[in-house]
């Protein structure tokens, strides 16, 4: 869904060459697995809804499944860039980021639908009251609105139309969305309840590590370019 500065050069020949190494059949298998993995929470929820095995409070369970899935998938998309910088052998991970990002939007939308339908009963007065009065709902809607342009501009056509630089800049909104989602979660639970802590920790690490990685990249690049006779590396 987004691209960090280091992958801005993703179109560079070196990367393209490395990505091409992965066999088409391997990519197909992996893509299928990712699709199955991403659809699994939805499939489970539908199965449990049909068989009435969502537990004592099905409404809350549906809200919880969709919300938590969106949160952890969002963390997943943010993990791809740092993971890739660990080793060139992990470059292929970028192939799955758009898919994962679109699933974040998909589950976030379902999550919002549970609120609009099952909690507010599609009642406009209730929805308006919720949006104007409740900060956790405000944060939830904000998160969805931040994800919306990212989903809309996820197509190859949109990337081309916007141009890499603008597209990258726009998709930095995902960092903000990760933070507003965090606020949404904390404000939703009761004071003193610590259940949003694991997600918070993961997101803060994934966001905090980015400046460090960028600094490390710059340092390496400087070292490389100052070495005599070395062709400047395009590697991130």
């Amino acid at each position: 869904m987004h691209m960090s500065a280091n992958s801005a050069n993703a179109a560079s020949t070196a990367n393209a060459a490395r990505l091409a190494i992965m066999k088409r059949s391997t990519v197909l298998i992996l893509k299928t697995l990712v699709w199955i993995g991403c659809l699994l929470p939805l499939a489970t929820a539908i199965y449990e809804a049909v068989t009435n095995t969502l537990g004592p409070d099905p409404t809350a369970q549906l809200a919880s499944i969709t919300g938590l899935t969106a949160l952890w998938m969002l963390a997943g998309t943010l993990a791809i860039s740092p993971l890739r910088s660990l080793s060139p052998r992990l470059s292929w991970l970028i192939k799955f980021r758009r898919l994962l990002g679109l699933f974040v939007f998909f589950y976030a939308s379902l999550h919002m639908l549970t609120w609009l339908g099952l909690y507010a009963g599609f009642d406009l007065t209730t929805i308006t009251a919720d949006i104007t009065k409740r900060r956790f709902i405000i944060m939830g809607v904000t998160t969805w609105l931040l994800l919306l342009p990212l989903a809309v501009t996820s197509t190859t056509w949109a990337i081309r139309k916007l141009g890499g630089k603008n597209w990258n800049r726009l998709h930095m909104l995902v960092y903000l969305a990760a933070l507003t989602a965090m606020a949404h979660y904390w404000w939703k639970v009761k004071t003193g309840v610590m259940s949003p802590a694991p997600y918070t920790l993961v997101i803060l690490v994934l966001l905090g590590i980015r400046p460090l990685l960028a600094w490390n990249r710059k340092r390496k690049a400087r070292a490389e370019s100052s070495r005599p006779g070395n062709l400047a590396s395009i590697e991130p």
Partner: peptide, 9 residues
């Protein structure tokens, strides 16, 4: 509690 999601409210 205990009803299907479309009958809970």
């Amino acid at each position: 509690i205990g009803l299907p999601f479309y009958e809970q409210r």
